[in-house]
Design a protein around this nucleic acid. Structure first.
Lengths: 214, 214
DNA sequence: AGCGTCATGACAGTTCATGACATCACTGCT
DNA sequence: AGCAGTGATGTCATGAACTGTCATGACGCT
């Protein structure tokens, strides 16, 4: 699929390589320029020098072209869960997952992420798809947790919380004036999340005021 | 089809009333029977005794018909946030939101919810849309929190956690052998969520500050 | 009676998405 | 060398999802 295994003086392939990459790049450009609705799959294919039919061989639908590479993003988080030290508590694994995932977003990627975020945020259909991707991440993290022996309600809640923290931190990471790294922002968000619950291990169901905002 | 019908002394509408309800009911039936892909908007409209064009006047797209009434569901949670006692901590408000939301799902609704869940779960396009709805709920809860004066990272995290807890509890509520009410399951899930974080300050990796602000 | 509104029907047009089949370079086997 | 297989692509055709536009007929208001 990807690189045709390059030999030495290998004759140029019948087709330009990297069709998938060209398609997703073209899609991002065009949607950024014209908006999602006004960009047709035919235009995207044309800019990539391919036919519309080929577009749909690489991507299940028009939106999917904007989400290429999401698997590596997910892997960054999941691998960190898998690679966490033996015997680590679910909490420690969650922290490790966030740290591992943050490596996927070095500062160099911030500008590109801003652009992509602008595009995704511009249309509900794209936000919708992004939510599906993030839900997949939560599921994968939870599954990896379970694989480590974490019990059930806990694994799912950890996966969901992982995504919650990522999302909040990521949104902040993209802010124009923000300079801190994603890892630090995730750490901060996680602290705020734990700060939500009352400190004492008492029952949760009754109101218990500690520190309120006002 | 559009029998003007029934008119006693009452002013009767030109068309059968409840077009929207008939459409969403027809959609749920047909998708349950045939699957989402094999159900056309024309079929749905026909079963409701309406034209396809009218379907799109009531719903923005094919999926939306399966999500009618979601606004009242959201309102159940948001109203509880708004109506929570003055001065309650963010945590207490979150608990109140969950309790208020649970009233929207009495046991009588469980069977219907199971059917609907089966339908939604059967196709990624529908799960996608559900995620968008739940993201909207999280945003609304967060906004209502902010309205109460809750500070920013906290409000968003509370909204997201509200949805996380709901989702985990709801999934369990629908299980065939489950008999407990949604409120109890949410309470349980919330306990598990708080149990995730280490109890003692500063036990794991990240620095942990108790009460910020004030 | 006249008039505007509003939910609907009817019909045509565009875009998305997929299935069936052909093409062409490269690969590997004989 | 020759030839069948493979894989990414193109072409054509079709159906289904939406959208724009105009027409209709009952309703309420004056």
């Amino acid at each position: 699929m990807s690189v045709p295994a390059i030999g030495y003086g290998v004759p140029v392939a019948r087709w330009e390589p990297g069709a998938r990459e060209r398609l997703s790049a073209a899609a991002l450009e065009l949607v950024d320029e014209q908006g999602f609705d006004d960009t047709t799959t035919a235009q995207v294919a044309a800019r990539a020098g391919l036919s519309e039919r080929t577009f749909f061989r690489h991507f299940a639908d028009k939106r999917e072209a904007l989400f290429a590479g999401g698997d590596r993003f997910e892997a960054a988080y999941v691998d960190a869960v898998v690679g966490a030290p033996q015997g680590a508590s679910p909490w420690a694994v969650l922290v490790a997952a966030l740290e591992g995932g943050a490596t996927f977003f070095p500062d160099e990627r911030r500008e590109h992420s801003r652009r992509r975020d602008r595009v995704i945020s511009s249309h509900p259909a794209l936000r919708e798809r992004e939510l599906l991707k993030l839900a997949g991440l939560a599921r994968s993290v939870a599954a990896a947790m379970r694989e480590r022996g974490v019990d059930e309600p806990t694994a799912t809640l950890a996966g969901e919380s992982c995504v919650t923290v990522f999302r909040v931190a990521f949104e902040r990471w993209l802010r124009p004036d923000e300079t801190r790294g994603l890892a630090a922002l995730q750490s901060e968000a996680l602290d705020h999340l734990t700060g939500l619950a009352p400190q004492a291990p008492g029952s949760s169901s009754t109101s218990r005021q500690e520190c309120s905002g006002s």
